[in-house]
Design a binder for these strands. Structure first.
Length: 495
DNA sequence: TGAAATGTTGGGGCG
DNA sequence: ACGCCCCAACATTTC
């Protein structure tokens, strides 16, 4: 048996394989990485920070923070297996071929993406690399099933979630996740290749160090953090998931969304872990089924993105193009963004978002509905804010969920389905714990008034130390009037 | 994964 | 004892 150093030497004489990591920042269940490591040559692991290619949407601030730490963790994990992660900045369509040429690469592998601009870059690249004699191959990894694998009987794509989910559930479970490669033998960095950058050069962290404080406290970006999060959720959250998921004060959801967004964990790994938990403990069946349904909402949103690459801009239902959105005033936009609308549940959610880069899903629906329906502001304005502020903002889920709330999406809530933020609060945050956590100036109010302080008596307000209009705002719109206005606007847009 | 308005039913107070 | 009314509770319809 040749000593390790001899094997390394022989391996380094072979042409290297490039693994282009994008939204799959993990070593386990990464078929592109495994394929590269299974070859006879060394491996060039690369990440390209690309906001230069046509149609690429710049990352939001919270996503940049997460990405920074995720790349940091990924580089460390790769180095622990004798590999190296090289970072680049610029248009991927130029960097990858230039690198392949300089390195004399024999192959290039990556995990598929589903946005319009991303597909355009990847498919052009595949052709270009093949023409240059480089074996380019893409893999499934971001989804359980490719959009073209879940089809209606007429071959078309689904526009209704329940039908999509039924079809997806009828497919065989995806293959078992593949293990992380034992070693990722680094190829020497080739002379004449595009210039590498340091992580710090990408400038992904906010200028004011303190503004990321809430993010740091709440999460651990990276593959190990994702794995721990999943294990903790299965251990303590899965059994009661079906009900706990609606209570924003509880730790009742998985909080895997930012890990999934950057591919630190794959949906295949999640499903495999759920199945295993099901087999081990019968009591989690209900929760795991519900959770699988949420994973399938994510799949559905990517399915829609694949069929509607312009969905971050264009209404999926064209009749909404006539919707008479109001020109938002700076004041009401600031009130919504800053959590000062006077509706405690909305304000708690918007403050959680700003402070932590996350918002509980139940509250996302209410806060989004408030912007679109109570303030009659174009959903795209809210979508952009969430894109900037959410660590988990991704090109499929963020636009599709906003369209769902606004009523213009696929299988959307009917436009007239208008959330009452008071009733939603009383139903899902009955104890007011969530509101008190994020809107502490209302903390002294009794449960009865915590979601509608403007109806409390002068006396109750005084005892709680609340002065409406001073320590906490009065509602910026009246619910009943705003509801009537929204319904009227819809009727107008349909006429 | 709505909320509000409207309709229906039945118990109980009351003359 | 009976009819009338009120209204809570639930069901259905509408937005």
């Amino acid at each position: 048996m040749a000593p390790g150093s001899e094997m390394t030497r022989l391996r380094r004489e072979q042409p290297p394989a490039i693994v282009w990591l994008r939204d799959d920042l993990r070593l386990a269940d990464n078929e592109a990485l495994s394929a590269a490591c299974a070859g006879s040559g060394p491996v060039l692991c690369i990440y390209i920070f690309d906001e230069a290619s046509a149609g690429f949407r710049p990352y939001g601030g919270a996503s940049r923070w997460w990405l920074h730490h995720s790349l940091e963790a990924l580089a460390r994990d790769i180095e622990a297996r004798a590999g190296r992660l090289d970072l680049f900045r610029g248009p991927a369509g130029e960097i990858v071929p230039a690198l392949a040429r300089a390195a004399g690469a024999g192959a290039a592998f990556w995990t598929r993406r589903y946005g319009g601009a991303e597909i355009a870059v990847d498919s052009a690249l595949k052709t270009q690399l093949a023409d240059a004699g480089v074996k380019a191959r893409s893999f499934k990894g971001q989804l359980l099933h490719e959009p073209w694998e879940v089809r209606k009987s007429d071959g078309g794509g689904f526009m209704v979630y329940s039908a999509f989910a039924r079809a997806a559930r009828a497919l065989p479970d995806p293959v078992e996740p593949v293990a992380a490669p034992a070693a990722i033998p680094a190829a020497p960095y080739p002379a004449g290749a595009p210039a590498r950058v340091n992580l710090e050069d990408l400038d992904l962290l906010p200028a004011k160090p303190d503004s990321a404080g809430g993010l740091k406290a709440a999460s651990t970006p990276g593959e190990a953090g994702a794995r721990n999060r999943l294990a903790a959720f299965i251990e303590s959250g899965l059994e009661d998931y079906a009900t706990s998921r609606n209570d924003p004060a509880l730790d009742g959801v998985s909080r895997l969304s930012p890990h999934l967004r950057f591919g630190e964990i794959s949906p295949r790994q999640i499903v495999a872990a759920i199945r295993e938990a099901d087999a081990r403990n019968l009591k989690v069946a209900r929760g795991s089924d519900k959770f699988l349904g949420e994973i399938l909402w994510r799949e559905f949103n990517y399915h829609l993105l694949f069929g509607h690459p312009d969905a971050a801009r264009a209404n999926l239902q064209p009749r909404f193009d006539q919707m008479p959105w109001r020109d938002p005033s700076a004041h009401e936009l600031a009130a919504w963004r800053g959590g000062r609308t006077g509706y405690p549940l909305v304000d708690a959610g918007m403050r959680e978002l700003w402070a932590s880069g996350y918002m509980h899903n139940r509250v996302r629906m209410v806060a989004a509905s408030f912007l679109v329906k109570h303030l009659l502001i174009d959903w795209r304005i809210g979508e952009q804010w969430f894109w900037d502020a959410l660590c988990d903002a991704d090109p499929a889920n963020n636009p599709m969920n906003w369209q769902w709330v606004a009523g213009c999406g696929a299988d959307a809530a009917p436009y007239f389905r208008i959330f009452n933020p008071v009733l939603q609060g009383e139903k899902f945050d009955a104890s007011g714990e969530y509101v008190r956590r994020w809107v502490p100036e209302l903390g002294g109010l009794p449960d009865k008034w915590i979601h509608k302080p403007w109806l409390a008596s002068e006396n109750a307000l005084r005892e709680a130390g609340v002065s409406l209009g001073q320590t906490y705002p009065k509602p910026i719109v009246d619910h009943a009037k705003a509801r009537a206005r929204a319904l009227e606007a819809l009727a107008k847009s349909e006429s």
